[in-house]
Nucleic acid binder design. Structure first.
Lengths: 207, 207
DNA sequence: TTCGGAAACCTAACGCTGTTAGACAGCAAA
DNA sequence: TTTGCTGTCTAACAGCGTTAGGTTTCCGAA
């Protein structure tokens, strides 16, 4: 029995070593360098070994995405926990999101590209979704803002952050500017959600 | 000379036929079906012929992206031209953007994936960027809202639309819901930009 | 201690990909 | 008619993800 558990341990170890090595390659050389032979070679194995730990390349990439969302969630949660005011809590968490994308551009790309199945990615992102949801319901409660559909609010905020992070990946924009855009967008959303109801829209004819 | 112009015409024709065929394959079967042999075969040629019209597969894909942004721009401009009020003009154009993504999911994916170089994509999107910029400066002028950095505003709006369109591609969200999210996000941004300056942020300590 | 079986790993190969080289046909100009 | 260019082909290259089949290694039971 002790040997069999050791085997299992070794198996799990090999699996996580593959993931770790793949992460390094991804961050250093981008998604195009992530070949099965290359990943296996980096831990001094041949390609078929990968298929004893993952059903295929897609499963390995999904594991990378899952690990990525865990890290992202941890960083967002950490920042959210340190904030003093509820508004700062939202803004800082948004900043953390964009900062993560800026610090791990290739990983962030993989976390949002069609390389990995969209629904699998969404499932992996679930903790982040919930964090954003909690964050905004907390914010709304503190400001006594009624929310008919909190999930919708969360999705808007989450999608907006992703939009700004995407802009950051464009060379002529970059992540410093994207961070400012994210800040502005979030401030605008918060202001609107607080203001909503107090102001009707005074519209004007188009020129 | 007449024969040489005919040759040029035929060359240009073959090029655009390749693009057209590639577009059809893309929309029907997705980006993974877009292989050089397949595209060439669809116009009854062999693969190497593609390299006499494009420097490589990347150039062909970029041409698809450029054509896509032209169509997107045309649809947005058309919708913007029909709007009655300045607010509707912005909202309708935003809706058109998300609707385009919903109607051409694979093309939209290609227009935003890392498959094509990010800066090339950004260049191809320039008309759309300018349209959004004009739209929002017009909106601001109509409402007498001062804008210190119109480009920043435009980027926020544009990025937000992209964020919502990205959410639409997730199966459990979908484009009908994404369209509503886009509407809500844009309304919120407009409201905030109009309200800004009139309201300070009354913040509260985090719970 | 020896034997049987399972697990781990390898080599070799398949069919696919983007891409290039070199040969061949057909047409325009000299 | 000959020369040369243009367009197209076949054949091949290296690389990809993936699978089949054989070989080694090691554990547990007889």
């Amino acid at each position: 029995m002790s040997t069999s558990t050791r085997r299992e341990r070794e198996r799990a170890n090999a699996r996580s070593r593959l993931i770790a090595v793949a992460s390094e390659i991804l961050e250093r050389e981008g998604v195009s360098a992530l070949t099965v032979r290359r990943i296996a070679g980096e831990v001094e194995y041949t390609a078929p070994v990968v298929y004893q730990h993952f059903t295929g390349k897609g499963a390995l990439l999904l594991a990378l995405v899952e690990a990525g969302y865990e890290r992202l969630h941890a960083q967002m949660a950490s920042v959210a926990g340190r904030a003093v005011t509820v508004d700062d809590r939202v803004l800082d968490t948004g900043r953390a999101y964009v900062a993560f994308a800026g610090a791990n551009p290739h990983l962030y790309q993989l976390m949002n590209d069609a390389t990995v199945d969209a629904d699998d990615r969404f499932r992996a992102a679930e903790p982040v979704t919930r964090l954003v949801l909690d964050l905004l319901t907390g914010w709304a409660a503190a400001h006594r803002v009624p929310m008919t559909d909190p999930m919708e609010i969360a999705e808007v905020a989450w999608g907006t952050m992703h939009g700004m992070a995407s802009l950051g990946q464009i060379g002529t924009i970059g992540f410093p500017r994207a961070a400012r855009l994210a800040d502005q967008a979030l401030r605008a959303l918060l202001l609107a959600w607080r203001t909503d109801g107090e102001h009707g829209v005074r519209d004007r004819p188009a020129g």
